[in-house]
């Protein structure tokens, strides 16, 4: 697997451009959040673009009205605002009427690192997955970021797409992986790791390092967080020790998703959840520094995994 040349955002917006070019009924709304990849869309399809202004509640309400009158609407903004500022509008209008609106939130996890806690997206998964009707995509590479734009566009129900920024290793390679919403990056072992989004690129290095120590671990990326494909559980059911790694708060994120899955299936698999603390980080610094506060840097992760394996008498 090589590193993609394309920024995850550009991959997404290139696909948005193609969708808008082919479907004049498709509209792209933003709460004054810009993106490099969006500029071409705004230039070429001004009639399909609305900058609502910094008014997320109204953005969702206007999207509701447009959708009820037959438009296919994408709404875009920073993920913490797009999910929390207008959660009730999303819950009641978009999901309550099962409207095919696509909510796109940029700034997953700590990607807006030094911009402070208002912009950190570490709780959005927890609240958004409480909505029964929604599909949640957390793409981890350029291919999946591009693909989810179209998958959400073609859906006849609400979607939420979390976008990170930057270039990442190529993870998704074929349409089956995209449809099932997860990818086996390293074959499943007795000890396996499940990660999502940005942390998958970190987990890939972690797994490589553990292998160097003679500890072979499986690695899966869970890209579609809701609904989780039934095949996902079938894939992990024969592991014995499972580790989830995410940047989200441990309350309600990937660890919760996997934990609930194990519980609902009466599984004996032992689970170790690694993620951000249940705490707001009212501090400013780089993503790596914020990770260090949460024991999420590569050495931290390695130490946490090894110590858990020692505790469970695996090593």
């Amino acid at each position: 697997m090589g590193i993609s040349k394309t920024d995850i955002r550009d991959a997404f917006f290139d696909e948005i451009y193609e969708i808008g070019k082919a479907d004049k009924n498709m509209l792209f709304l933003t709460d004054d959040m810009d993106a490099f990849g969006l500029k071409k869309f705004v230039r070429d399809f001004p009639d399909q673009f609305i900058n609502i202004g910094v008014a997320e509640q109204n953005q969702i309400n206007v999207a509701t009205g447009l959708t009820l009158c037959g438009k296919k609407v994408f709404v875009f903004g920073i993920c913490s605002f797009m999910t929390m500022r207008c959660f009730e509008q999303i819950k009641f209008n978009i999901c309550g009427m099962n409207l095919p609106v696509v909510v796109v939130g940029i700034g997953a996890g700590f990607s807006f690192d030094s911009d402070g806690p208002a912009l950190h997206g570490t709780q959005d998964i927890a609240i958004m997955r409480s909505l029964p009707e929604i599909t949640i995509y957390n793409p981890s590479d350029a291919v999946s970021a591009s693909a989810v734009a179209r998958m959400a566009y073609e859906k006849n129900s609400p979607s939420y797409i979390r976008l990170d920024k930057g270039v990442y290793p190529v993870i998704y390679e074929n349409s089956f992986e995209l449809q099932s919403g997860f990818k086996i990056i390293r074959p499943v072992q007795r000890i396996s790791i499940v990660s999502t989004g940005y942390m998958t690129s970190v987990a890939m290095v972690l797994a490589e390092g553990l292998a160097g120590r003679g500890i072979n671990v499986g690695l899966l990326d869970l890209m579609r967080l809701k609904p989780v494909d039934p095949l996902f559980y079938e894939t992990i059911r024969n592991t014995e020790l499972l580790i989830t790694i995410e940047e989200n708060s441990l309350v309600g994120g990937l660890g919760s998703i996997v934990g609930e899955l194990l519980s609902d299936n009466d599984s004996d698999i032992k689970l170790k959840r690694i993620g951000s603390q249940d705490k707001q980080f009212v501090v400013y610094g780089t993503r790596n520094w914020l990770h260090s506060l949460n024991n999420l840097t590569l050495p931290d992760l390695e130490e946490t995994v090894l110590s858990w394996l020692r505790k469970t008498h695996e090593i």
Partner: peptide, 23 residues
């Protein structure tokens, strides 16, 4: 549209009115 939550309807109606203009 579903009702019960206040403060939504003007924005929703605005979206409907805008859709009429667009079409």
């Amino acid at each position: 549209t579903n009702t019960g939550s206040l403060g939504h309807s003007i924005g929703i109606a605005a979206g409907m009115a805008l859709a009429a203009k667009m079409d």
